[in-house]
Design a binder for these strands. Structure first.
Lengths: 229, 229
DNA sequence: CACTTTTCGATACGGCACGTTTCGTATCCT
DNA sequence: AGGATACGAAACGTGCCGTATCGAAAAGTG
């Protein structure tokens, strides 16, 4: 197989790969991904935009998936994943987390977020690769936030992050997918009328298995590959 | 344009359309839709399964969208939309509504629900057509349920259905899309730790504009059609 | 500096799947 | 009967895939 990872170091003689080509291609992948989606992405189109030859692409990545994963890994879609959140109030923290998640989705934008679903859904491997490449979806509720809220008396001890983790990612993603606005007013409503009351009530509920938006496929056979006949 | 709606009655001469062909085709559309999704649906494949000629399809529907909409309209995907819900408790009502919504998604199954997003997202017209064809998404919280709960003292007067309408549809749909289970345990957790507490807290929050999952595109230009260059 | 190795863009090929149209035949209405 | 329409089969063009080949360029190697 003529495809070698770029990072391999055996230092063969000959003309080295052009890093500029590589990044140009990956940028093109992001662009095409954004407007055509995963299914609609073709080697042909990527090569066209990058001003590169298809051979150059195939020399690097044997499959579309590899190429896309590489682009996601290198692309601007990385989660900001800034430091811990502590605004002094639970409301503030939750708002900040929501905003951060929105920013992540926006960064992974051009509907890359959509791609996550559209493609990952059909292709568990790609799904995992995406999650690994793009980082955690950011829909987790950090323990530090819960702890701080408990310390302040805003939450009962043993509060369960389930409502946050389960709701926020889904709602914001779906909202984004449908082109519905998720402005500050909306976030406030979500935090005040859903998240905070729900979190307050979780002390007695049994803890739920948290589930990422993209990870955690429990039913491996839920993802059919090819049809019957 | 040689395409005429089947229902037109002007009684033209010539061989009439074969209703059996029609339903066979629409069934095939449903099937293909279920396993290949909207993007993956082709005239070719539908014709193959229906044992029909592609010309026969084209004679009826000029575009894929028309065909799909026809299939949805005729298909078994209609929402059950049973009568009003009244189980005697708010919890019970909410659970019942969730189950009903799940049933709708399952009825429109084979990931037809997915199709709703995957395609509707890119195509507002299709989106509207779907919503019109398949009926309301069922993620509304009937006023009767709220009223009953208020009467029982389970909710404060003026409770806002926002948490339910905004959360349930998104969460269940996304869960379904990702192949994550939404069993009864899960629904109980959702109802008890999210919905009920959130609904209880909505008396003072300003009412939010309700938004269906599929309808209500506020930004018409959020839906790009063709590329640039 | 010559020589080798590898990359690069361009281009071409066979193959396949699809969309769309054409054609001969079958079927039904008037 | 005659005209009009529906039907299935097949043809045509297009776009993409995956691969291969070419000449030129760019680096290391002796």
């Amino acid at each position: 197989m003529p495809y070698r990872k770029v990072s391999e170091q055996p230092r063969r003689a000959g003309r080295p790969r052009d890093a500029a080509r590589e990044s140009a291609i990956l940028e093109a992948v992001d662009a095409v991904l954004a407007e055509r989606g995963y299914e609609g992405l073709t080697y042909e189109e990527v090569a066209r935009r990058a001003g590169a030859s298809k051979a150059t692409l195939y020399r690097r990545w044997a499959t579309k998936r590899e190429m896309v994963v590489a682009a996601l890994r290198a692309g601007p879609a990385r989660a900001p994943d800034a430091g811990p959140v502590d605004t002094g109030s639970l409301r503030g923290d939750l708002l900040a987390l929501c905003r951060r998640l929105l920013a992540t989705m926006r960064a992974a934008d051009g509907r890359t977020a959509l791609l996550l679903l559209q493609a990952g859904l059909e292709d568990p491997e790609l799904c995992d690769a995406i999650e690994e490449a793009v980082g955690p979806t950011g829909s987790r509720l950090p323990a530090s936030v819960v702890d701080a809220a408990v310390r302040r008396g805003e939450l009962p001890a043993g509060a369960d992050p389930f409502p946050f983790e389960e709701v926020v990612g889904s709602v914001l993603l779906l909202r984004r997918l449908n082109g519905l606005a998720a402005d500050d007013d909306y976030l406030h409503a979500l935090v005040d009328t859903v998240l905070v009351p729900a979190l307050r009530a979780t002390a007695d509920g049994a803890p739920r298995p948290p589930a990422g938006i993209f990870s955690g496929h429990p039913a491996p056979d839920t993802h059919p590959r090819e049809g019957d006949s």
